[in-house]
Amino acid sequence: MRTLPCCSLLVLALAACTQPATAPSPPAAASAAAPIAALAAGERRIKMSDGAEIYLKVAGKGPVCMLVHGGPGQGSLSTEKMGADKLEDFLTMVWLDQRGSGKSPDAQDYRLERVVQDFDEVRRALGADKMCLIAHSFGGILAVEYAKRYPQHVSELVLANSTLHFLGPENSRMQIAFVNRLLGRTVVAVADDANEAALAEGRERARAALMKSGKGYRFLTENTDSIRVMSEIDGGYERSRGFGNAIFEQRGAYPEYWIDYAPVSARIRSPVLVITSSKDYAVGPDEYKRFRFAHQKTVTLDGGHISYYENNAEFVAAIREFMAGRR
Rank of each mutant, 00 (worst) to 15 (best):
R326G: 12
K215F: 07
I319R: 04
R185E: 15
V179K: 00
F138G: 03
A189F: 08
C132S: 10
R205C: 14
V229A: 10
V179R: 06
D225P: 00
I247R: 06
I306G: 01
S270P: 00
P151H: 05
L9S: 04
I134C: 00
A125D: 06
K215Q: 09
A324E: 15
L67G: 01
S101V: 07
N312P: 05
I319E: 07
V188H: 00
S231H: 03
D109R: 06
L112Q: 11
S49C: 09
P63S: 14
R149T: 15
T276L: 00
P5K: 12
E145C: 06
R124D: 14
F315I: 07
S162K: 10
G83C: 00
D109N: 12
R241G: 11
M48R: 04
L133E: 01
I268Q: 00
A37M: 14
Q19I: 07
R173P: 01
I134N: 00
F119Y: 14
D260N: 09
R185I: 14
L182N: 09
G303C: 05
I54T: 11
S155T: 10
S231Q: 03
S307P: 02
P27F: 15
M211T: 11
P24S: 13
G242I: 01
A160C: 15
I54V: 12
A125R: 04
F248I: 04
R149E: 12
H305Q: 11
T276F: 01
D120K: 09
Y254R: 08
S278N: 08
Y146C: 03
G51C: 13
L157V: 08
A209F: 06
V229G: 07
G216M: 03
S270M: 14
A33K: 15
F138M: 09
H136G: 04
E249W: 06
G284A: 11
A262H: 08
R111M: 04
V190Q: 12
Y150S: 10
V158F: 01
G139D: 07
G75F: 02
G235I: 05
T3G: 11
I176L: 02
F166D: 00
N223G: 06
N171D: 09
P5R: 09
A37P: 08
Y150H: 14
L301M: 14
K81M: 11
H136N: 13
L301H: 08
A317I: 06
G304Y: 02
K215W: 10
S240G: 08
D302R: 09
M48E: 06
L133K: 02
D193A: 13
G214W: 11
R185Y: 15
A13P: 00
Y309V: 11
P27N: 12
K86C: 06
Y254N: 10
D225E: 13
Q152P: 09
E314I: 10
A209Q: 02
D302N: 11
Y150K: 04
H295Y: 15
G140N: 10
T186R: 10
V68E: 05
V190P: 00
C7H: 15
A135H: 05
S270D: 01
A30D: 09
E201M: 13
D193S: 14
